[in-house]
Design a protein around this nucleic acid. Sequence first.
DNA 1: CACAGCTTCGTAACGTCGCTAGCGGCTGGC
DNA 2: GCCAGCCGCTAGCGACGTTACGAAGCTGTG
Lengths: 234, 234
Amino acid sequence: MAETDPLRAAMIEAAERQLASSSDHEIATRAVCEAVGVSQPVLYRLFGDKRGLLDAVADHGYERYTALKAAQEQTDDPVADLHAGWDGHMAFAQANPALYQLMFTPRPWSHSTARDRVMDLLVASLTRCAAAGALKLEPRTAAQLILSANIGTALDHIARPALFEDPTPSHRMRDAVFSHVLTTTAAQNDADPLHTAALRLHAQLDLAGTEALEPTETALLQRWLERITQPGGR
Amino acid sequence: MAETDPLRAAMIEAAERQLASSSDHEIATRAVCEAVGVSQPVLYRLFGDKRGLLDAVADHGYERYTALKAAQEQTDDPVADLHAGWDGHMAFAQANPALYQLMFTPRPWSHSTARDRVMDLLVASLTRCAAAGALKLEPRTAAQLILSANIGTALDHIARPALFEDPTPSHRMRDAVFSHVLTTTAAQNDADPLHTAALRLHAQLDLAGTEALEPTETALLQRWLERITQPGGR
DNA sequence: CACAGCTTCGTAACGTCGCTAGCGGCTGGC
DNA sequence: GCCAGCCGCTAGCGACGTTACGAAGCTGTG
């Protein structure tokens, strides 16, 4: 599934460049083909459609996204990593506004998986927090919350780029969502110890697994733990 | 400024209909003109541009937005009104997804004021909360926070409409942001009484004004109050 | 009534866009 | 050497946004 078609990669990069330097956040298939020195039918042979090209550009944007994040993350403090992740997300939006909108703004009939993969990244980061006992919600629901808030503020900042100069509004939103998702590190007001213990065990199993149980047993155990952590929902 | 050009209104409504029933969230100037029985140059004489037409559609969407909100808001409990406002915003996004994206998604070179006007509506609603002493932040910064979060979750829900069926994630985000913006109604942990008092007075002056001071004096007082409520932010 | 000036609309066209049918050349196996 | 299959190009189609230009209607003055 990891095709390394140099022509395909060249077209994606050309499309990305033209997208970044276009005033209306649009690209022309003709211009992309001219940039790499081929003609239009090859584009439709490779991507099938203009939407296919845009989807490929969005998916390629995920690589750029992970590259920006790999440069900073994964310390021994998962909560600090989470904070850095929020700021990195905002920095990515500031650096590539057009690509960001392509990745995170809803497009009809889009088959891009960029957003889902970013979501998975966030879930992994949150699972580490849960393993440290710092998460109040399940990683997936927490990730949904954080990602929506992050995208909302990033789009607002893209619409008015002056906002990027002052990190205060972004950090305010970050603190608002995080304080609703994370356990207050200072005062450990553990209202429901069973709940938090189940979350913690679930995350530990996700991360490391166990050899003490059969895989099917582990799967069943995870489902039981989810049932313990779920009742708050609805 | 309130021109009532019936032709202009008809074209806006036709464009809105075609936008709502188009699979790719796009409209064609030719189709809009045919729908109202005129030819294309009239469109360019009335709106100057396709973007001008889209801006007009977005601004008209604000009317529809206020119409939906006027049906519920303005009780004697401003905090309850705020909660209803969030849910109404989500309902509007669910009812008109394409129009919603046109209004709230950043478009280059857009002169639409829809988002700003919605922001003003929210500021007004928040000022009422501040007058009741229920707000921890200044109305404008709180509105920025709430609106960004609201738009972020709404866009997420538009991308995956199944989310609309369960209000839990929306309410979770709502509670997260509101609890960071509103004073906890039950336990009035007033950490900075001066701060809250200044906010309260500022809001009261915004709402009712005063005849005890000259307008210039009132303006200066408001700026002093803002300086009192500001120091927390950078 | 007549006529000039202005507004207002339609006709027709231009350039560009996304997309595709059909043909020519290259490569690899026999 | 020859044939099959892949690959890219040429040329073109229909639709799009946009505009130059001429016809038609209204207004106000003589």
